[in-house]
Simulated assay, not measured.
Amino acid sequence: MPDDIHAGCPRIEPIGLDGVIVRFGEALSQPANRAALAFRAALERDVPDGVEECSTSLVSTFVRFDPLSLSLAALVSALEQRLTGTDWYAAPLPEGRRLLRIPTVYGGDFGPQLDEAAAAAGMEAEAAIVALSGARVRVSAIGFAPGQPYLGTLPEAWDIPRQTGLTPRVPEGALVVAIRQFVVFSVSAPTGWRQVGRTAAPLFRPGSETPFLLRPGDEVIFDAVEAGAWDRLVADPKGGIVTEPLA
């Protein structure tokens, strides 16, 4: 059964004139994220007539429909039927997931806020690198910028707050951390999260048939490498990434 942070969920909420959100939680949790991903996959395997798009956020599935061919009431009824009888919080994750090992340079110019983030987590910088590079995290959602992943959840020590101010700009490939999550920046942008490392991962490939490197449900390990490896990683179109399928 869902715990307190899932109380009142799942529930369906209209969004604008042609969308609904199926919400599985009020805050990020692995079960709620699992439910959102699994429910989206189920809808995409058997798309209701009139539904035009499905996508996921951290704990919700978004459904966009054609209101000229499908009424809101009919869609809500169809979704309620699909929600019934399945424990979506324990449902299998979508097929086709992968484990990606992404080489990452931590600290120094590549992670200028590593020491600060480590202190907030109650550990020394070297211990922080061991902890962060040893974490296996799941892509919870893609958002903010093309191909940009949110990944979690990290151990409780990394439930550290965002900064009170903004870092004016972090580079493409910056690995940042806050609130038990990683984000890897697909573009250079400002952020309130602390940069602990940098990758050469090609997150957004606009000329590719699959422009986003990562997909919700994929799992990632940000392996620590020495700063001297950076030039080699940048020269590699894959950024040194090793990928294997997940059963």
Rank of each mutant, 00 (worst) to 15 (best):
A135M: 06
W158G: 00
A145P: 09
Q148H: 05
V170N: 03
I129L: 09
P161N: 11
S140C: 05
E124Y: 10
A127D: 14
I129A: 08
R136D: 13
A127S: 14
P171K: 08
A125P: 01
R136K: 08
W158Y: 02
A125C: 05
R169I: 01
A141E: 07
E156S: 13
A125D: 09
I129Y: 12
I129C: 09
P149K: 09
V130A: 15
T153G: 05
E124Q: 11
R169S: 11
R169Y: 01
A127H: 12
L132G: 07
G134L: 09
A157C: 10
A135V: 05
Y150G: 07
R136A: 05
P155K: 10
D159Y: 06
A157V: 05
V130H: 14
L151P: 03
G143L: 06
A141Y: 00
L166S: 10
I142V: 09
E156D: 15
Q148Y: 11
P168W: 05
L151H: 04
P161E: 08
V170P: 00
Q148A: 08
E156Y: 06
E124L: 10
A131T: 07
I129P: 04
E172V: 13
R138H: 01
S133K: 10
E126S: 12
T167M: 10
V137I: 12
G143M: 02
